[in-house]
Design a protein around this nucleic acid. Structure first.
Length: 661
RNA sequence: GCCCCCGUAGCUCAGUGGAUAGAGCGCCUGGCUUCGAACCAGUAGGUCGCAGGUUCGAAUCCUGCCGGGGGUACCA
């Protein structure tokens, strides 16, 4: 469905053409009015035309209003000019009734305009180093990436979601050393990833006390790099086990992937060698013979060396060190080339497993014998989006710039770093974790190495526990109320209650991660994150539960039923109109949120829409008891429209849809 | 030094060229005999960090400054 503001802009463009005297090619601004008492939509177009026509803007607005009144067709009920020169537009009841009909007919999928069809996007997110449990910072990454992927898919883009797993770094070696040479006690029946998080912290401390361990780490790291031998196999197995835990954590929040890509496979399959050759051919990198980077292969960026307080530095970026190891950025260049299909090399693929939504998760493999010929074609993206925190903006830019220097300008332009600010801990949260905090500190950085972190599972567990307790309490009061005549409700089984609590926890956690702008640092606080009232994911689910309740009762009562029906003859009531206008705004909001890669915009919209429904709900007599059949049918249709559209919005946000709460 | 992000109500944050700057939380007040009160209605609370500039119009764009954070690794 085309967004309302664009439909109106098309109408207004015609009007401007008639007023100006020739076809109008300039911009035609139309906005959702922030003055619902005056208008549904408004345009300030007359301001811009005033200078061009050298006439007072209000005069022009009046002419446009007059023209639209005669040419507005069935879409508009009124068009009026208002000082200083706004053009206020009111949609007609018949148009609103048509909206209800269309939203229901399309089961809420009104924002799917198909603009993205055929343009494959490769989107990478999560990317947790497989040596520890996911914390809320990783969770933010995954929520952002998953929601952006869902938004793009709803607009028709084929999106391939990849999760890059760096299983060859020192962090994995650290944990392997800790597992082998330290005896870290397990905490009850804690999951493997949580245990490894503890081991990781313990081994950091052990290095200081026992230097032989540092040698052990070098040994493990060497084995990992060579990919040969028992140590390398053990390291790989550990990494895979932890990665499986991380995937399970994300699956709790409905986050899945298409493909896992392992750094060890990138190394083993010689991705870097190919990229290296290309970089050399194109003269993008040079071998330094003097200066601070002597003996390295570097990308020359700066103007030579610069003297700073910290000593002599260069702005050049090292890709291969003097010890001939390949830096992360270098590997990322090869990986980025592969994503665009520029490398001329590919992984082998095998099935990793089935995911919660029934889709297949694939993984790369270096072994040709494991290759599954039924694997889909991966990579070859037209666009590549990397969801990585904003501290890595510089290395990301280096990667894209190297693509450009190699002659891949289009691909460099089609490379996007979705940079988001990190999650840190509030002073209260840090203290709750037993971390010593400075008096004047306002936040504490998370650190897997230092053991300062809130785990994603911990957040979900605490939310689920709180929600389960709240549900139990409600069930008690419901039963007490039923004693004194209120309608009885069937109490869910313990199993159902636990399942519901988990799904509500998902909603709360995901919404919390999205309610901050991507560039806004989240100061994680338990009091805010565990909230189940106010602007939360729970509020969203509750609004839908209310709507579902009405739909159920209307259907059970065998009344007119929730079919779209004409607007009431004495006009659409204000509460109904406000709700419907919100519903109708969905296509516009989704398009801009997706284009800006800003899930917050959709999350805020979802909240606003839920508010509109709750107001409608509370300020409208019970629909199921409505005696005026025409009005009951209209409102039943309106509720149905909300139910479908809002359900679709929640689906794009990755928030579970519940019938009961 | 250079680059990026942040600065809006007591707190946490939306709003990035349009009309009277909003929400949640917190404070105070009111509302469940009818669709689930995890809700709704209302009160109080703001020189939008500061100073210039552009514009019919600036929280929003430009310049300079102040405060906070991050980056500028032969770590990932």
């Amino acid at each position: 469905m085309e967004a309302i503001d664009r439909q109106l802009a098309a109408l207004l463009r015609e009007s401007i053409g008639r007023v100006v005297g020739e076809p109008w090619e300039g911009p035609v601004p139309v906005e959702v009015s922030n003055r619902p008492d005056l208008a549904d939509y408004a345009s300030p177009a007359a301001f811009a035309l005033a200078g061009r026509l050298r006439r007072p803007p209000l005069e022009i607005a009046n002419e446009l209003a007059a023209d639209l009144t005669t040419h507005g067709a069935s879409m508009l009920a009124s068009a009026e000019a208002a000082a200083p020169a706004f053009l206020n537009l009111r949609l007609s009841d018949s148009f609103l009734a048509g909206l209800v009909e269309e939203t229901v007919a399309r089961a809420g999928r009104i924002a799917d305009d198909g603009t993205g069809a055929g343009h494959k996007i490769v989107l990478e997110h999560t990317n947790i180093n497989p040596n520890k449990a996911a914390h809320v910072g990783h969770f933010r990454n995954a929520c952002l990436g998953d929601t952006v992927a869902r938004m793009l898919r709803r607009l028709g883009h084929p999106v391939e979601v990849q999760n890059y797993i760096d299983d060859t770094g020192v962090q994995v070696a650290d944990v392997v050393v800790g597992l082998r040479y330290l005896d870290v006690p397990e905490q009850g029946d804690e999951p493997f990833d949580r245990y490894c998080s503890d081991v990781y912290v313990a081994v950091q401390q052990a290095y200081a006390a026992d230097e032989s361990l540092v040698a052990r780490r070098a040994e493990v790291q060497h084995a990992i790099e060579s990919g040969e031998g028992e140590l390398a196999t053990a390291a790989l197995e550990t990494a895979q086990r932890i990665a499986a835990c991380n995937l399970a954590t994300m699956a709790r929040a409905g986050i899945g992937y298409d493909l896992l890509t392992w750094e060890s496979d990138i190394l083993a399959l010689g991705f870097w060698q190919t990229a290296f050759a290309r970089l050399q051919e194109q003269g993008v990198i040079v071998a330094e013979t003097e200066g601070p980077n002597a003996g390295c292969w570097v990308v020359p960026f700066g103007v030579g060396t610069v003297e700073t307080e910290e000593g002599t530095v260069t702005e050049d970026k090292v890709l291969v060190t003097s010890r001939e190891t390949v830096t992360y950025t270098a590997k990322d260049i090869a990986y980025q080339m592969w994503k665009f299909g520029l490398l001329g090399r590919d992984f082998f693929y095998r099935v990793w497993g089935e995911q919660g939504d029934g889709s297949t998760l694939w993984t790369s493999t270096r072994h040709e014998l494991e290759h599954d010929p039924s694997a889909p074609r991966f990579a070859d993206g037209e666009r590549v989006i990397n969801v990585i925190d904003d501290r890595q903006s510089y290395p990301q830019q280096v990667v894209y710039d190297c693509l450009r220097r190699m002659g891949f300008e289009a691909e460099a332009d089609a490379s996007e770093h979705l940079a988001y600010a990190v999650v840190s801990l509030s002073v209260e949260a840090a203290r709750e974790l037993g971390v010593a905090v400075d008096e004047d500190a306002r936040k504490v950085a998370m650190s897997g190495r230092g053991g300062i972190q809130v785990y994603a599972d911990q957040l979900l567990d605490r939310l689920a526990a709180r929600i389960a307790a709240a549900s139990a309490e409600r069930a008690e009061t419901d039963e007490a109320a039923a004693q004194s005549g209120a309608p009885a409700r069937t109490r869910p089984s313990d199993e159902e209650a636990a399942e519901t609590a988990e799904r509500v926890a998902t909603a709360a956690a995901r919404y919390y991660m999205l309610k901050f702008g991507t560039t806004q640092e989240i100061i994680f606080d338990f009091e805010d994150a565990l909230r189940t009232t106010g602007e939360t994911g729970v509020y969203l689910q509750y609004a839908l539960v209310r709507a579902s309740g009405i739909a159920r009762k209307l259907a059970a009562g065998d009344a007119i039923g929730p079919r779209p029906s004409p607007a009431p003859t004495d006009g659409v009531p204000d509460a109904d109109r406000a709700l419907l206008l919100r519903i109708a705004d969905y296509p516009r909001v989704l398009a801009t949120a997706a284009q800006q890669r800003e899930p917050l915009a959709l999350a805020k919209y979802a909240f606003d829409l839920a508010v509109a429904f709750n107001r409608f709900y509370d300020n409208t007599p019970p629909i199921v008891a409505e005696q005026d059949e025409a009005l009951r049918a209209w409102r039943g249709g309106l509720v149905e429209s909300f139910r479908h559209v809002f359900g679709d919005v929640l689906d794009v946000l990755g928030i579970p849809v519940l019938e009961r709460l």
